[in-house]
C-alpha cells in the first residue's frame, strides 16, 4: 500500500491549504462577530455563503463523494482523507466546501438509493449547497447504539406512510435551511431483526413534525443544533421511501463507512491545531525563569 499523495490529491491539497490560509482562518473572527451580533445560536452568518461561493470558484466543492456520479467526479477515500484532515482545522471549513455532515452521508445515500424524482427534489439542491438536511435515527426511549432497538413507527396507509415517534440528537435540524430529514423507523416489526427498518424522506415542514428543543453539548448550543423531534401522524407519499422496505438497516451501515474516515481525519486535523497552539504558547510564555517549553 502506498500513502504517497496521488497527483490529484497533492494538487487539491495545495489549493485547499491556500484557501484555508487566505480565507477560512481569517474568516473565523468575522464569523464570531456575526454570530454574536445575531443573538441566535442557529443563525446562518453571511460569511459562510461568501466562503461557499469562493470555494466553488476555486474548484473545492463536493469533494467527499468516493464514487463518480452524474454530478461529481468522485475522489477515493485515500485521496479525500488528507483534505478532510485540513478541513478539521477550522469549524467553518467543511460547510464552506459543501462537505459537512450530516449532508455528506445523506447525499451519498441519495446518490446510491434515491429515485430520479428524489434526486431532483433533494439531492441536487443539497449538492448545490442551497439546502441542508438531517438524519434521524437516535431515540430517547431506547439504547440507540443498537440500531435494531429503533422503534419509530412507519406504517403504510394506502399511498402514504404514517410516521409516529420521537427522536433526539438530530444534528442540523435547528437550521432554517434544513429542508429534509431521512427518518429511520420500523415498517414491519414482525420481520427478521435486520429487515424491520426502512428510511423515508420527510420534509421538515410536514404537518405533525415538531422540533421540540435543541440540546446543548456541555452547555454549548451548536449552530446546526442537535434537536429532539416528535413525529405525530406525519404523512408522506410512499414515493418518499428510500431504497426498499426493510432495507433501512443495511443502508444505515452503508452510510457510515466513508463518513468515519472524514470524521476521524477532521478530528486529527483538530488535534494538530491543538498541538500547534500548545507549541506556540509554550515557546513564548515564561514561568520560573524559563519558557514553559523548557519546564520539566
Amino acid at each position: 500500500m502506498d500513502f504517497e499523495f496521488s497527483p490529484k490529491a497533492a494538487e487539491l491539497r495545495q489549493r485547499l491549504v491556500e484557501f484555508m490560509d487566505e480565507r477560512i482562518i481569517p474568516a473565523e473572527a468575522i464569523y464570531r462577530q456575526q454570530m454574536e451580533a445575531s443573538g441566535d445560536p442557529h443563525f446562518h452568518p453571511p460569511v459562510i455563503e461568501e466562503l461557499k461561493a469562493e470555494a466553488r470558484t476555486r474548484g473545492l466543492w463536493n469533494l467527499f463523494l468516493p464514487h463518480a456520479t452524474e454530478w461529481t467526479e468522485g475522489l477515493s477515500n485515500l485521496d479525500y482523507a488528507p483534505l478532510a484532515e485540513i478541513l478539521g482545522r477550522s469549524p467553518l471549513a467543511s460547510e464552506a466546501l459543501n462537505c459537512a455532515a450530516p449532508d455528506t452521508g445523506n447525499m451519498e445515500i441519495l446518490t446510491m438509493f434515491g429515485t430520479p424524482e428524489q434526486q431532483d427534489r433533494w439531492l441536487v439542491p443539497l449538492l448545490e449547497g442551497e439546502i441542508r438536511s438531517c438524519f434521524a435515527m437516535t431515540e430517547p426511549a431506547v439504547a440507540s447504539s443498537d440500531a435494531t432497538n429503533i422503534e419509530c413507527s412507519i406504517r403504510r396507509d394506502g399511498d402514504e406512510y404514517v410516521i409516529n415517534g420521537r427522536k433526539w440528537w438530530i444534528s442540523g435540524a435547528a437550521s432554517s435551511r434544513c429542508k429534509v430529514a431521512i427518518v429511520m423507523g420500523k415498517t414491519d416489526p414482525d420481520a427478521p431483526t435486520h429487515s424491520q427498518q426502512s428510511m423515508v424522506l420527510v420534509p421538515m415542514d410536514a404537518p405533525g413534525l415538531v422540533i421540540e428543543r435543541a440540546l446543548p453539548v456541555f452547555g454549548y448550543q451548536d449552530r446546526e443544533g442537535h434537536c429532539e423531534l416528535s413525529f405525530n401522524d406525519v404523512r408522506v407519499p410512499v414515493t418518499n421511501l428510500l431504497g426498499t422496505e426493510g432495507g433501512g438497516f443495511a443502508m444505515a451501515q452503508a452510510r457510515l463507512g466513508p463518513g468515519r474516515i472524514h470524521h476521524c481525519m477532521r478530528t486529527l486535523g483538530a488535534a494538530e491545531r491543538a498541538l500547534e497552539l500548545m507549541c506556540r504558547r509554550v515557546v513564548e510564555r515564561e514561568a520560573f525563569g524559563k519558557p514553559l517549553a523548557s519546564q520539566v
Binding site: S76, N77, Y80, E85, P258, I261, L268, A271, L275, M278
Partner: peptide, 25 residues
C-alpha cells in the same frame, strides 16, 4: 505532552489512511 501528541496523531493518521486504503482497494 508535545512528543506524545506528535506520536499519537501520526499513529492515528497512519491507521486511518490504512482504513481508507482498504476501503478503496
Amino acid at each position: 505532552w508535545i512528543a506524545e501528541g506528535r506520536i499519537e496523531i501520526d499513529q492515528a493518521r497512519l491507521l486511518t489512511l490504512y482504513a481508507a486504503w482498504l476501503m478503496d482497494n
